[in-house]
Each structure stands twice: as structure tokens, then as C-alpha cells.
Amino acid sequence: MKRIITLSLLLLVCITIIFNACQSQAELDYARYYVNGKGLYEAHCQNCHGEDGKGLGQLYPPLTDSLFLKRNRTKLGCIIKNGLSGKIEINGQEFDGQMPAETQMTNMEIAQLVTYITNSFGNKNGLYDVNAAAADIKNCDK
């Protein structure tokens, strides 16, 4: 009887592991974009926007305003690619600095970075794939 219970528990654990290991392609894509975006954020953005995305006082805006990121999601790729200068309001606070352009970034890198930013720091906006990034960047106002 003890052996049957042990085997049953082992079988249950195996089934649980197999079930949890099966992710959809969308979940795998999201995870891949997010992880790669985190590395890009650390290399290109974290110095100004901070490890926690809260920015730096009046100098650099936070990336924690979910509403701003959601409303401007189609503009984020352009902002990353071409930089930003002039006044911008985030969380009711005005910033008037200059963000450098990341012209060397590919559409895939921008998609990964936007996926990370829009799903970190309290944000939950889902996958922003390379096709969306390419379309948005193609339509940038220059």
C-alpha cells in the first residue's frame, strides 16, 4: 500500500511538471522578448531611468506610468530609435530634457525593449512584437 501511494505521488508530480512545462508559442515569444529586453534595458536605459524604472528626479522621467506607456505604445519605438527632446509630461510632472537616439538598434531589439519596459515597473501591456515595431518605426514623424 505504501508503495502504491509513493508511485501515485510520483506520477502526480511528473504530470504536474509536464503540464507546467508546456507553454504556448505566444508565452514562449513573450518570455524571450522580455528576457532579451531586460538585457537591453540594463545596457541602454537603466543608467538614466534607474533599475526600478523610477527615473531620476527632475532629470529623467519614470517608466512607471502605465497609462502613459499604454497611450503612447505606438510611439515608443520612435522615441527609442530617434531620441526625444522637448517637454514631456509623465505622472503629472513635466520633463524637459533630451533622450539620445538609439539609431543602431534593430526593430527586433526595439520590440524586445518595449516589451520589457511595458511589462515591468508595475506595467502589464503584453507582447510588442517585431512586426509592430517595424510598422510603428516606419511611420515615425521625423
Rank of each mutant, 00 (worst) to 15 (best):
N20F: 15
R73A: 09
A31Q: 15
K81V: 01
L59M: 15
G37E: 10
Y33L: 08
T16W: 07
D52I: 12
K54T: 14
K75G: 14
H44Q: 10
E27R: 06
R73F: 00
G55A: 05
G55S: 08
G50S: 11
Y41P: 00
L76E: 05
P61V: 01
I15T: 14
G57I: 00
N36I: 06
N72V: 10
G83H: 11
A31S: 13
E42G: 05
D65E: 13
L40F: 08
L76Q: 07
P62C: 10
Q58W: 11
Y60L: 05
L67A: 06
G50C: 04
Y41Q: 06
L56H: 14
L28N: 05
I17T: 07
I17H: 05
P61D: 00
P62F: 02
D65R: 06
G53C: 02
S24I: 03
P61S: 12
I15A: 14
G39S: 11
C14F: 02
T16Q: 06
D29H: 03
Y34T: 00
N72P: 00
G83M: 03
P61N: 12
A26F: 05
G83S: 01
G57A: 07
R71L: 15
Y30V: 01
G57R: 12
I17E: 03
L69T: 03
I79T: 11
D65H: 03
F68V: 10
